[in-house]
């Protein structure tokens, strides 16, 4: 039984692509068969974050237009044998694909994969509609900033209107030092405002930039963000991993720094 997950946010630049790459890679590292689909037509990025930009021959639009078979457009990951990427087209625009075509393609992919992860473009227009059309559940990415949270709320409303059964929240780029000083909303504040279940908190970590520079997802490695993404992957599969004490974030960071698997 496969699951189709859309990673979305509304606002651009909050970490959808990074999240998609890391969650996909993490799930594949657990032995799951995973395909990552970049649905941002015209502005593809998932390929560079994954370090697979040199291997692209066919893309999503070619598949939809029947210029190639699905298998020809799938790029095998360098690191994990069960991970594939379907890149987006760089020369077309969002109107090259419609929601019905996406659903048809996803239904074909369901036979071969455990997880189909869709990296959604920013915005709420055609690209968003394409990305959510075939999805079963959503991961909404936000940062603890007013603009990102506002857009996330709008996206959640649209997902609910489209009858999504499961919508989970990822809070990205949280800075515990700022939360401690009272200059950033805590994870609990954000959850309180958006009122959807929290599935992960990713601390602001320079290693994310380094990993992107290298085209290597950092999930599972010994960095703060790497551990956070690993925990998100476990939770996506239904495993219960306790959160670091995010609700007491005002004073906890100094006390429990480094304890991610706290029971």
């Amino acid at each position: 039984m496969s699951e189709v997950i859309v990673v979305t946010s509304g606002k651009g630049g909050v970490g959808k692509t990074t999240t998609s790459a890391n969650v996909g890679t993490g799930l594949a590292a657990m032995g799951k068969r995973v395909v990552l689909i970049d649905t941002d037509i015209g502005l593809r990025n998932l390929d560079v974050v994954m370090g697979l930009e040199n291997r692209i021959v066919y893309n999503l639009v070619d598949v939809v237009e029947n210029k190639c078979r699905i298998k020809q457009a799938l790029i095998k990951d360098k690191r994990h044998p069960s991970l594939y990427l379907m890149p987006s087209a760089q020369t077309k625009d969002k109107t090259a694909v419609n929601p019905e075509q996406m659903v048809r393609m996803i239904n074909q992919l369901r036979e071969q994969f455990d997880y189909i992860i869709l990296d959604c473009p920013a915005g709420i227009e055609q690209g968003f509609k394409n990305a959510i059309a075939g999805a079963d559940r959503a991961l909404v990415v936000t940062t603890p900033e007013v603009s990102a949270i506002r857009d996330a709320d709008r996206i959640i409303g649209l997902l609910e209107a489209n009858e999504f059964k499961q919508i989970d929240l990822i809070i990205n780029r949280l800075r515990y030092d700022m939360v401690k000083r009272g200059e950033m909303m805590s994870a609990a504040d954000v959850v309180d405002i958006l009122s959807i279940p929290l599935i992960g908190i990713v601390p602001d970590d320079e290693n994310v930039v380094i990993a992107t520079n290298q085209g290597e997802p950092l999930v599972g490695n010994n960095t703060l963000a790497g551990k956070a993404y690993q925990n998100i992957c476990y939770r996506v599969t239904g495993k219960e991993i306790p959160f670091i004490e995010f609700d007491k974030s005002v004073s906890f960071w100094t006390r429990v720094s480094g304890i991610f698997h706290k029971n």
């Binding site: 900033e145 007013v146 949270i149 506002r150 709320d153 709008r154 409303g157 939360v179 000083r181 009272g182 200059e183 950033m184 909303m185 805590s186 504040d189 405002i193």
Partner: peptide, 18 residues
């Protein structure tokens, strides 16, 4: 604190958005 300002602003903003 700017955290509280952000929270207050968002609460009002989201009500009108919703």
């Amino acid at each position: 604190k700017s955290r509280d300002i952000a929270k207050d602003r968002l609460k009002i903003l989201l009500i009108s958005d919703r």
